[in-house]
């Protein structure tokens, strides 16, 4: 067994994400009265290790490492970390890491479940570029939806504190409601565009003999998700309140996380 492997680097990244989650939870308990620099720094460190792990695997396999459940889950966490770090670069939105770090740790730990990292099938070898693009773009979309959901959850917590006149709403160094709404909407819009591209790219992939797009559970699930996000964004445009929009963002991503792996396993095309 080679040592260290890309999987060891990834496992280490998950441990660092876990440390970030602990730091963030401590900050939460103290009412966010300090900047989440430690949490953000740890997520950045974990992201570095995570990127290293993905690069090592990609280089060794000569393809984008998104072809089995382990790789897909790892890439999903990486997308979420990337989007968070891009947003968290600004001090005003750094507080989102408080919610991002535990999710990164959980998704990372799920990826490390034994038996998920199986060799890819023949289809992967024959349509490498298109497939890589399809999976990468789609997973980046989920990363964006994830951060939109975090912004939505934070909006709901902050809004409740505001309505109840809790002092912590003034003490916490967290983004104002308007910025959270803005982040939530923009990330969802960007995620929606990427999901659309991912679905179109997926439609361009050659289908196995006898397979039908309209009968594949994963395809149906993804199209359903696309419709739900489209409805949510359209609703917001037509005056849906920010609170309902935030509930929608958080709820839809929760649903995505809960059903993502089950639909992947139920789909002959997407099952490793």
């Amino acid at each position: 067994m080679n040592w260290p492997t890309d999987k060891h680097a990834f496992a280490l990244a998950v441990v660092v994400y876990g440390a970030a989650a602990v730091a963030s939870m401590r900050l939460w308990r103290r009412g966010f009265e300090r900047d989440d620099r430690v949490g953000c720094g740890l997520v950045a460190l974990g992201f570095g290790l995570h990127t290293l792990a993905l690069l090592a695997r990609g280089l060794s396999l000569q393809r984008c490492p998104v072809t089995n459940i382990y790789e897909v889950t790892s890439f999903l966490a990486w997308s979420l970390a990337l989007v968070y770090l891009l947003a968290g670069w600004r001090r005003s939105t750094r507080g989102l890491g408080v919610l991002a770090a535990p999710i990164l740790c959980l998704v990372g730990a799920a990826a490390l479940t034994p038996g998920l990292d199986r060799p890819a099938g023949l289809a992967v070898e024959t349509h490498r570029t298109l497939l890589s693009l399809h999976v990468t773009v789609t997973l980046l979309a989920y990363g964006l939806f994830g951060l939109a959901a975090l912004a939505g959850a934070m909006f709901l917590v902050r809004e409740r504190d505001l309505r109840l006149g809790r002092l912590r709403v003034l003490l916490a160094r967290l983004p104002p409601l308007q910025r959270l709404e803005n982040a939530m909407r923009r990330m969802m819009q960007a995620g929606f565009v990427l999901l659309t591209m991912g679905l179109v790219l997926g439609g361009l992939l050659p289908r196995p003999a006898g397979a039908s797009l309209s009968r594949d559970p994963k395809v149906l699930w993804a199209v359903g998700l696309w419709l739900l996000y489209a409805a949510l964004l359209a609703g917001r445009r037509c005056g849906l309140s920010t609170r309902r929009f935030a509930w929608g963002a958080a709820g839809l991503f929760g649903y995505t996380l809960l059903t993502f792996w089950a639909t992947s396993l139920a789909s002959p095309w997407h099952r490793p």
Binding site: E33, L162, V169, L170, P176, L177
Partner: peptide
């Protein structure tokens, strides 16, 4: 310490609240 933190006048608290809502 937090001894000098926060505002203790009605006007300042109103402005702080505005700061938690608007960017």
């Amino acid at each position: 310490t937090g001894i000098q933190r926060g505002n203790v006048s009605v006007a300042s608290v109103a402005v702080e609240l505005a700061g938690t809502i608007f960017t």
